[in-house]
Design a protein around this nucleic acid. Sequence first.
DNA 1: TATTCGGACGGGGCCACACTTGACT
DNA 2: GTAGTCAAGTGTGGCCCCGTCCGAA
Length: 352
Amino acid sequence: MCNKNSGSRRRRRKSKSSSVSLKASRKTRTKTRKPKYLSLLHLEENLPQMNLNTKTSSNNDNNKSNHQQQLNLFPLHPENLVEDKDTQYDNVCLLFNTTEEDNVHAVTLNGILDDESSDYKNETTTTTTTTTTTTTSDESPLSPSLTYGYSGEDHTRSLERSAMKGKKERDESEEKWVVYSEVVEKKEMEEVSSCDGGGGGGDGGGDRGGAWCISSGSIISKKKMKKLLALKLDYQEIMNAWSDKGPLYIEGESPHTVPDLNDAAHVLGDVWGSVSDVWRVPEMVTNNVGSFKVKEEYEGKEDWRRGHREASVLRYKEKRRNRLFSKRIRYEVRKLNAEKRPRLKGRFVKRD
DNA sequence: TATTCGGACGGGGCCACACTTGACT
DNA sequence: GTAGTCAAGTGTGGCCCCGTCCGAA
């Protein structure tokens, strides 16, 4: 709502670390603390509340009734973690599988990309799927991925802008998005040139035990090459390295089959679709006793999906109703100290 | 109907310092 | 493995600033 990043008020917080760094520090920490980031799951849950809490004319009544609804201030608090434990799966479901009746547009990766990319195509014609994207402008195409389909679109957009503006002030080189296919393509072109020179092609000496090298005899056009995921493993060296370390696979388990991506069946069609089919991890479900079971083993998959989704939505709604929004004090002693601490216009001042 | 103005609202920064955390001895 | 030390990081409350919203002029 408020963009704190702009305006003269924005005073830079006095860097405690910089002042302290004048002292001779013993040693720089090698291990950083765990960052307490808000996860996407919490964003997914909290963003709606943020929207509810913003002052809009249409939502004023709702605001009053939902006055207590605020952000979960301590998403990583142990209690919250416990609370969330049983609903994580549900949240994932809701994140990608929401229902219209829940007044939330279906949010899928494709949906996000499609909707917003088409939206942004109108605004910026330079955005393509293959360009390397860096977040440098307020209208960055990255922001849509943080957007949730909500009735308050304008507010959501303003949130995006605020977030992106904040990001912009950070190091712009901090994060770059690179299209994998470009990297792969580049790498492969280098491989092709090098392999062609020394391998002699076919089943010659360049073939290292059937590794997924282009020189191993599998002739693929460049066009197809672009679509392939180039995972190149030197099996022979791996086997040699493991030869004295026992079996590669866990005892009793059959080795996982690695699909041959050079197989024509997988090359045809959408590479992501085929790869995702090949690599698809069987969806696991829990029964009442807590053991896992492959989802496909259930009879009537559609019924199962529908029922489970309804239950998930119900659980989500129930949880949303019962959410506790009052500010939670983690350390009571700090509160007492802060209350005792002398202030000047609300700010802490030094004790004389 | 479009524009301007001002009040209301809310988010977040600021401050000092006791306390927590994690690395190191 | 355990205890102690040290420094960096965290959390706390009240006030204020400023962006946004919205109704009135």
